[in-house]
């Protein structure tokens, strides 16, 4: 193996600093959330305790955060499932290069770059003018989809751009119907990337703030609830909540990555060697 150039060590140091920059603050609030009951928002630690985590279970200290968590969870799952379905269908559609696909593509790009507050404001205005009350599961749901779908579709485009149509032709030649081709050939091949779409769908919805701000109605989602707390809570309880929900996010990400990894292993084990060049 070639000797490492000197720049390697400088860049490694830079990368390490970057990781400290990325994770350091989160780690700090994780430590501070174990402050003693007299502790404040910064160091020094005045003892260690679970005091602030216990506070999370008391309504008067934090408001209805568990209700907000439940709503965010349900909404995240709704957005995730919808994002997968719509992205896969959209990905398949774009392969057909139908008339008007260019326009639809630019709409997807627009959804990605439009300032979130415009979606929030516009959807809120439509609902109020139509006399329909805004609710997280209707207007909030739709507004969040405009953020998660572009990511799902970009993943699908990347997947289908590398997809070998010979597999489908083979299935067709063997007499498979279009649906059978998709069900038994296309979907199993793209399944691992759907884990990625699901991950984006859930986490982006679970953490979304701006697009839900004017579209959630009277029942807050968790990010809205947390933001509300930043203006009137001045104790480490907010760090405890931040630590808990970040830990939850890490857990979700971990599960998705584990499923992705297991799928790859299963595939490597069961995959056929046919067609591969002899070793």
């Amino acid at each position: 193996m070639k000797r490492r150039p000197r720049s390697f060590y400088a860049l490694t140091a830079f990368f390490a600093l970057f990781l400290v920059f990325l994770y350091g603050p989160t780690l700090t609030i994780a430590i501070l959330s174990f402050q003693g009951p007299q502790g404040g928002l910064t160091f020094p630690m005045r003892g260690t305790s679970l005091h602030w985590f216990r506070d999370l279970f008391e309504q008067q200290a934090v408001g209805d955060i568990w209700g907000a968590f439940r709503r965010s969870l349900v909404l995240g799952l709704m957005v995730m499932v919808t994002t997968i379905l719509v992205s896969v269908m959209g990905g398949l559609a774009f392969r057909k290069r139908f008339a008007g696909s260019g326009l639809l593509f630019y709409l997807i790009v627009t959804a990605l770059v439009i300032p979130s507050i415009l979606v929030s404001l516009g959807v809120g205005l439509i609902f109020s003018q139509a006399g329909i009350p805004v609710h997280w599961s209707t207007s909030g749901f739709g507004a969040q989809l405009t953020w998660t779908l572009p990511f799902g579709l970009l993943i699908m485009f990347a997947v289908f751009n590398r997809f070998d149509p010979a597999f489908e032709e083979a299935a067709r030649d063997l007499g498979a119907s279009p649906w059978q081709t998709i069900r038994h050939v296309v979907l199993p091949i793209i399944a691992p990337s759907l884990i990625g779409v699901a991950l984006f769908g859930f986490t982006l919805s679970y953490d979304e703030f701006a697009r839900t701000l004017l579209t959630a109605g009277s029942y807050n989602t968790l990010p809205l609830e947390i933001f509300g707390m930043t203006t009137n809570v001045t104790t480490p309880v907010i760090f405890a909540l931040g630590t808990l929900t970040t830990a939850f996010s890490f857990g979700v990400i971990g599960i998705f990555l584990a499923v992705f990894w297991l799928m790859g292993r299963r595939r490597a084990r069961l995959g056929s060697e046919t067609g591969k060049p002899a070793p």
Partner: peptide
């Protein structure tokens, strides 16, 4: 970190 909450990541600068 992209898949975690932006608001929490902002809050976490306060002690710094």
């Amino acid at each position: 970190p992209f898949w975690t909450s932006n608001i929490i990541r902002m809050i976490s600068w306060i002690p710094f």
